[in-house]
Simulated scan of single mutants.
Amino acid sequence: MGDQLKGRTVFITGSGGVLGSTYVRRMLDQGARVVASDLPGHRAEALQAAHEGNENFRFYELDVGEEAAVEEIFKRIMGDGWEPNVVLNNAAITGEMLMGKGKSFPDFCDTTVEDFEKTLHTNLTGAFMVARQMDRDIVGRYPSTLINVASMYALNGAHHPIYDGMPFKNFSAYGVSKAGIHGLTVWLAGYWAKRNATVNTISPGAVFNGHSEEFQRRVGELIMQGRMAQPDEIADVMLFLASAQAGHMTGQMVNVDGGFSAW
């Protein structure tokens, strides 16, 4: 146990995924009180089981795409005696999640407006709604931090050939939504500057999550360090951004991508 985040109460959306669950574990290890949220389902159940009995952990079901639910979330949390001073906008839908297992990815020309807009609504509008509610309920009451989670594809084009023959593709709406995430960051950083709140973006690179050796090889050739990241390597930087040591950082994008974006 460390104390890098002692005194911090962190609210994390999309906590059940490979990165979200890693953030929860590492932040608890560093002394934070963690309020996790996700959609109901096996990921949420596994997360709750992993931290059952930990007095510094709470879980709330939340769909960030539902406006009424987002408008109530901070009131529910604070009504239970917790006051988040760090918020992670981590919830996102990927192409794999949108299409579902066993379904083929459409070519760009066959992408439906419904699928495109559903991705934007969850990844970008959802982040906006969480930030807006943070503005209403938290910002200005006490020092606070918002960390928006983007992607290596936020400001860099996808290398489409690495997906040839793979069971998944890079989905256009994902990169578009993640570019918008950093737009939200820089807008809010200035808007909240005089209210003792900071806003930054973290952009994870390719994170290993059971990928095939061939896909790892293809991606590794695009990365200076020659490999995909482990979830804890992304969490290492997230811990810093959530800590008091990042107090003079705002409006910044931090790439944690092994050098992908520097080439």
Rank of each mutant, 00 (worst) to 15 (best):
G65H: 03
D80I: 00
F74A: 02
F59Y: 14
E67C: 06
G53K: 05
E83C: 10
G65N: 04
R58F: 01
G81H: 13
F74G: 02
E55V: 09
L88Y: 15
E72M: 11
R76T: 11
F74E: 03
A68H: 12
W82E: 09
F59M: 02
W82T: 12
E55Y: 00
N56P: 00
V87G: 07
N54V: 08
G81I: 13
E67F: 03
W82G: 00
P84Y: 07
M78L: 12
G79E: 10
W82H: 14
N85Y: 08
F59S: 04
A68N: 05
L62Y: 01
F59N: 07
A68M: 08
V86L: 09
E71M: 01
N85R: 04
V70Q: 03
M78T: 15
E66V: 11
N56T: 00
G65R: 06
R58E: 05
D63G: 07
G81P: 10
N89P: 04
Y60D: 02
E66A: 04
E61Q: 13
R58Q: 09
E67A: 13
V86M: 06
M78S: 15
L88A: 08
N85P: 07
F74L: 15
R58K: 15
F59C: 07
F57H: 02
G79M: 10
A68R: 09
F74N: 00
F74V: 06
P84V: 04
N85T: 13
E67Q: 15
K75T: 15
D63Q: 10
A69F: 04
G53R: 02
R76M: 11
E66R: 05
E66Y: 01
V87W: 09
Y60T: 06
F74W: 04
E71R: 13
E67D: 15
V70R: 04
N54P: 04
I73L: 14
E61A: 12
F57C: 08
P84A: 06
I77W: 05
E55S: 15
E72R: 12
E55L: 10
N89V: 07
E66M: 01
V70H: 03
E71I: 00
V64K: 07
F57V: 03
I73H: 05
E66W: 01
L62I: 12
E67K: 12
N54H: 11
R58V: 04
E61S: 14
G79Y: 08
M78R: 13
D63K: 09
A69M: 13
L88E: 09
A69D: 12
E61I: 13
E71Y: 01
L88K: 03
E83Y: 12
G53A: 10
N85W: 01
L62G: 06
E67G: 06
D80S: 12
V87T: 14
G81S: 11
G79L: 07
A69R: 10
E66F: 00
G65C: 10
Y60I: 10
A68G: 01
A69N: 14
F59I: 08
V86K: 03
G81C: 11
R58C: 03
E67P: 01
E72L: 11
N89Y: 03
N54R: 12
K75W: 00
E67L: 14
V87Q: 08
V64M: 11
F59Q: 08
D63V: 11
V86P: 07
V64G: 04
W82R: 02
E67M: 02
